[in-house]
Design a protein around this nucleic acid. Structure first.
Lengths: 249, 249
DNA sequence: GGTAGAAGTTGACGATGCGTCAATGTCAAG
DNA sequence: CTTGACATTGACGCATCGTCAACTTCTACC
């Protein structure tokens, strides 16, 4: 895979100007530039571009996009992609609601019926139908999460990662003894795990449970945990399922 | 109904700054301004605002929005609203496709499977999934239609309206004699009607048929035609249905 | 090898759609 | 009559590219 700027533009449905802009602001640098200065893109850049475009589609400002796509923690990445997915579905529903409102307006106008002002704007208020974009990405959740991570000193970052290792290892030992997901020892470890995740992300009940499932299903994550013993990821998943019940929605 | 700027803003989910901006650029003037200069809005303004917001939602530039919402020909207005509705549905489907693409990317990444570049951007290319916004509104169809109407001199505009009256009257006579929708006389009149509509809008098969149905179903339109005799609107609808078959999709 | 044409490069300016701040005025309640 | 909430009109700012302009480079064909 070695594409020139025009090919990438065609594939992604953007203009070459946009790609140059993204290069200029440091958002998406080409894999290499030919000896003549021409930009060449590879697979990794395509993946990154897709990620960028999803976020752009959600009206996330490009500098925020940069901080998001720069995260390299796979836990965060996966959680974010799930969030993006949910946001896209929310958009879909929003446009469905808008279409319905327009249709209702049309038929009511045709029949000469009156409409209340509230009816008329049903679906238009971003605040009610879009608790995603601005509130979600503006300078909240994810943005803060990255900022939080970045604010840590290198030692603190290492300490944070070490805590995760410690939890995973302890979980592995519990898995080795056939411990129950709901047992006090395991739940205590999950609590530590939740606290660990919460540094950059405060998942709700569903989100945390989803994260747990992903740990067990995604080969990469599973490997991360199962290196401490087979069944560790599965134990974590089940333990998280129990723990998640206590979280707010 | 007599609302101040804050009330309108709350209802529509925009800021008061936006409403002032729309006033400043002549897009949406308040119904009246109090003796102290405060803007007061009425029902008509709310309807116009809804129309504006639908178009804005579709990324139509505001000056184009202005030219669209300024049309006063009810035929055009109805046709446009139907188009807007279709465009919103297209958006809905687009976000559904995007969500699907992201989901596919996620699961494939989880399983370590490769993805083709084409797969990855499925749904992102605006050209393929959005033959609406830019191409539809940019400076095409509707924009041109308004411009076309505006380019006519006042006498030409009168002549155009007179042609419509003449067609409607002739149709009324045909309806009075119980003519068949498919008869040569009636079809000749429909051809004139189509030519009349085509000045500002070139409807495809489905669109023209839909327009015909609206003529018969919408009380206001029905009245326009049935004043030349009961059943005129129905005859026109059926005749258009026949005529539309000959149109390109 | 020469040359045309397509497509790349950087650099610069412009447009759109409001956000936001400043300075000021007015209304309704206590 | 004060106070605080909200209105008004400028004015400037900004993000995200679009759109020239001037120039270079690759490819293809004679």
């Amino acid at each position: 895979m070695d594409l020139d700027i025009a090919a990438v533009a065609r594939l992604a449905g953007v203009t070459s100007r946009t790609l140059r802009h993204y290069d200029a602001i440091g958002l998406l640098a080409p894999a290499a530039t030919g000896h003549d200065g021409r930009r060449r893109y590879g697979d990794a850049e395509l993946l990154r571009l897709q990620h960028i475009l999803v976020l752009r589609e959600l009206d996330v400002p490009l500098d925020t996009v940069a901080s998001i796509v720069d995260t390299d923690d796979p836990t965060l990445v996966a959680a974010l992609m799930r969030d993006h997915h949910a946001a896209l579905l929310a958009r879909r529903d929003r446009y469905a609601a808008l279409a319905e409102t327009v249709e209702r307006t049309l038929t009511r106008l045709e029949k000469g019926l009156p409409m209340t002002a509230d009816d008329m704007f049903d679906g238009f208020d971003g605040a009610r139908y879009e608790p995603e974009a601005r509130e979600r990405w503006g300078d909240d959740a994810v943005d803060r999460s990255n900022a939080a991570w970045r604010r840590l000193s290198p030692e603190e970052q290492r300490a944070h990662l070490a805590e995760h290792e410690a939890v995973a290892e302890a979980l592995g030992r519990q898995a080795g003894t056939g411990a129950e997901p709901g047992s006090p020892e395991v739940q205590a470890l999950v609590a530590r795990h939740h606290a660990w995740v919460s540094l950059f992300w405060t998942p709700g009940r569903e989100a945390y449970a989803g994260l747990g499932r992903m740990y067990a299903e995604d080969p990469r994550f599973r490997a991360t945990y199962d290196k401490h013993g087979d069944g560790t990821a599965a134990l974590l998943r089940d333990a998280i399922a129990v723990f998640a019940e206590t979280l707010p929605a």
